[in-house]
Amino acid sequence: MSAPLASLKILDFSTLLPGPFASLLLADMGAEVLRIESPTRLDLLRVLPPHDHGISASHAYLNRNKRSLALDLKQPEALELVKQLLADYDIVLEQFRPGVMERLGLGYEALKAINPKLIYVSITGYGQTGPYKDRAGHDINYLALAGLSSYTGRADSGPLPLGMQVADIAGGSLHGVIGLLAAVISRQQTGQGTHLDVSMTDCAFSLNAMAGAGYLACGEEPGWEDQMLNGGSFYDCYRSRDGRWMSVGSLEPAFMQQLCAALGRPELAAQGLSPKPEQQLALKDALKVEFEKHDFAELCELFAGIDACVEPVLNLGEAVQHPQLQARELVTQVPRGDGSSQAQIACPLKFSEALPPPRHVGAAPGQHTDQVLGELGLSVERIAELRRAKVIA
C-alpha cells in the first residue's frame, strides 16, 4: 500500500509529548517527518525513564519513523538550512511559547514569505493570544482551567490527577493532526497555506461536550459524583473481594437486567432504570455489596459470556494479553537498527490496506544530519565545515 500521507513532508520542531505524538500519527500514516533538534539542549523526553537498551522507551515510541537533524537555530547558517528545507518540507510543527520562533527568524510570516503554501502548526498551552499566552503550564493545569477537573473526581477527595495526559494528547496532539490535515485539504483547493493556532486549554475546554452543553444551555453546573457518568449513579467501578476492580456501564435496560441477574439480584434492575438520584445511589450501594462477594477471576468468568457492559479493570500487562487487543494487533515490533526490535504500541488506525510496517525507533540526536544535508546538495566538505563551526551535530 502507498501510505495515505506519503505526500506530506513535515519539519517538526516540537519536543516532549503533544507535538511528537501528533507527528507520530502522521509518520505512521506515511508522512516524512524530520525532527529539528538542538545539539546542546536535549529533549527531556530522551532521558525519561524507563530505559530500554539505554534509550527512553517513551522517546523510542513517540519518535519512531522520524529522522533527526541537529541544528543550532541561533546561528545564521542553521536558519539558512531551514529555509532551504522549506522548498520541500512545506509543513512546520512547533511547540515553543509564542514569540520564540519569531525571535529565531522562523515565525510564520517570515517562512510564509519563502513558501506561501506553508502550513504552520503551533501547539501551545494557552494559544497565541490572551493574557495567559506566555504562562507556563502542564496537562493538570490545562484541565483545571478548562473546567474538566471540577467534575472529574470524588466528592470526598476532590479532583483526580489522571494517569494519561488528556489535554496534551486529546487536546494538543489530536486536534493538531485534525487541523493540519484540514489545512492540507484547503491548500489543495486554494493553493494557500495557513497558520494553525492550537491551544491545549482551548481543546480541553471543547472536551466538556456533554457537561459543557448542559451548563451553557441550562445553567447546570456539574460537580463531583453528581452526574450519571461521573460517579453520581451506578455507572462506576466496583471492588472485588480480593481488591481488584470491575467497570460497570450497564445503562440500557437490557444490560441492566443482565447485570443484576448475573449477580443473583434481578430485582435491583428496576432501581437502575429509575431517574431518581436516591434510587441510583441505593443501587450503587447494593452493587458494591454484591461485587465484594466474588473474587476478580470469578467476576471475569461470570461476565465474559454476558453482554452487560461489564468489563474488568486490567493493568497494562493484562491489556496487552487480552484477546481483543491481540486480535486488533495493537502491539508491533519496531526495529532498533541493530538487528533487534522493540515492542511498541501500534498505530491504532486500520485502513483496508495495511499501513507500511514501522521503520525504526526514535533516532539519536542528529542521526540523519549528514543524510539530510546531502539531500540538500551540501558536499561532505561543507557538512564537515558546519560541524566544526557547531552549526550542526
Rank of each mutant, 00 (worst) to 15 (best):
E77A: 13
D134K: 04
N208K: 01
Q326H: 08
R382T: 14
P277V: 13
L26A: 02
E37S: 02
S38H: 00
L25P: 09
A70P: 01
E301C: 12
E77T: 09
E298M: 12
G158Q: 05
T40E: 14
R239H: 10
I91S: 12
K284M: 02
A182E: 13
H138R: 04
L216N: 11
A3G: 02
E80Y: 15
L145E: 12
L73S: 06
V331R: 06
L349I: 15
L355C: 00
D139S: 05
S56W: 08
I383H: 06
L11V: 11
E37C: 02
C218M: 15
G137F: 03
T129R: 07
A297Y: 03
V320R: 14
C309E: 01
H138K: 01
Q75R: 14
A254L: 11
A319K: 07
Y235Q: 07
C203I: 00
P222E: 05
G377I: 06
P323R: 04
T152H: 10
T369L: 08
H138C: 10
Q192K: 11
C260E: 02
T40F: 15
E311M: 13
P131T: 04
T332E: 15
Y215Q: 09
A182M: 15
V334C: 05
D52H: 14
E318I: 02
S247Y: 07
I91K: 10
G377H: 05
L71N: 01
K350M: 05
E32N: 12
Q280L: 04
S56G: 07
F234S: 09
H51V: 13
K117F: 01
V82I: 15
T40Y: 14
L325N: 13
A183E: 04
G127P: 02
L42P: 11
R336C: 01
P50K: 06
D307F: 01
E102I: 03
G214K: 12
D202F: 03
L34V: 08
A384Q: 11
A204M: 00
S199D: 08
R46I: 04
D197I: 00
V184L: 06
E80M: 14
A3E: 02
L26H: 03
S149K: 15
D156A: 02
L148P: 07
L71G: 04
V313H: 09
L299P: 01
T194S: 14
Y235V: 08
L349E: 12
A343N: 12
Q227E: 05
E220Y: 15
F296I: 08
F255M: 02
Q188P: 06
T369G: 10
G176V: 07
G249Q: 13
L24D: 10
A286S: 13
T15F: 09
E381F: 14
S173F: 11
S56D: 05
L71Y: 01
E311F: 10
G179I: 00
Q84H: 08
L62R: 06
F205P: 08
L263P: 03
C309K: 02
G54F: 10
S206A: 14
E298Y: 09
I383L: 08
L376Q: 12
L111N: 07
D12L: 05
M29T: 10
E221Q: 15
Y120W: 10
A384P: 03
G366C: 04
A70G: 06
V184R: 11
V177N: 01
D202E: 09
T40R: 15
D242A: 00
V47W: 10
S2P: 13
D43K: 09
A6H: 11
